[in-house]
Design a protein around this nucleic acid. Sequence first.
DNA 1: CTCCTTGCAAATTGTTTGCATACCT
DNA 2: AGGTATGCAAACAATTTGCAAGGAG
Lengths: 153, 153
Amino acid sequence: MEQKNTEELLKEKLRKKGLKVTHQRILVLSVLEQNDGRHMTAEDVYELVSADYPDIGLATVYRTLQLLWDMQLVDRLNLDDGCVRYEIGHLLKGDTRHNHHHLICRACNKVIPFGDDLLDDLEHHIEDATGFHVLDHELKFYGLCRECMTKQN
Amino acid sequence: MEQKNTEELLKEKLRKKGLKVTHQRILVLSVLEQNDGRHMTAEDVYELVSADYPDIGLATVYRTLQLLWDMQLVDRLNLDDGCVRYEIGHLLKGDTRHNHHHLICRACNKVIPFGDDLLDDLEHHIEDATGFHVLDHELKFYGLCRECMTKQN
DNA sequence: CTCCTTGCAAATTGTTTGCATACCT
DNA sequence: AGGTATGCAAACAATTTGCAAGGAG
């Protein structure tokens, strides 16, 4: 039912823009929804969608991810490993607290998700101070993880 | 004098690692220092260094930026425009408050720097909670700028 | 029937790498 | 001298684009 809602929302947004509802678009969104929490590359999505729909092309996945991002249905993040990653949009999950924080170890490149949200105040402050309407944020901390610290790297 | 310090620091760090002090390395760091506040791509740096030292190769600039980043002499940031950007390291500037916040408009792609630092508490909280030693952070807010908001984009 | 969308392959673009030469120490 | 760094060109990898064929409204 959660899934049905997302799919309906996609169809609605597509129609509103005069765009077409295609299997490929539905499947890409559905794969992201079913893999909530994973940070998926276009290639990851491509492989999973291919299971259901072997004819899909990688270029279509790229185009679709871009489109879904434009429509605010998916979130995008960059973990500095050379490829852009996507996950189901936090807005869709009725989630006021976005878990977009990551600790990236500069020694071993491990990525540790960090869920917390002390940024609401800051977002409001920004809106008041600049008139910029904040939809989402991405926060990365760079440093040394516990293991690399003890290895005195 | 500020500049002299940075250059000396570089030399010191290079020697400590058994690496060599070259014109190219000094010039790259110097260009970043003289362009504090600009978010420079490797290409930008390449062009400016070329003025003083026309023989430098783009590959050297890439290698040097990576090296300077590893040594914590420069900061790296990603503004989602397809290339990595660098600026002089905030640690070098005796700057406790890092100005690594950016507001990125999803309609017009404008990037608005936002200087503020409410993240110190959060950094301490992370260190206590996870043992991760934070060296730096990068924070991006996505949304709609005032102009695009009024255009009801 | 019309225009949007797709798959494929070729093109792009930022970045990296191999290698012979040039340079620090 | 000896190993590190450099410049150049070729190699890479993620992403984008042109285009003819296919599909949704």
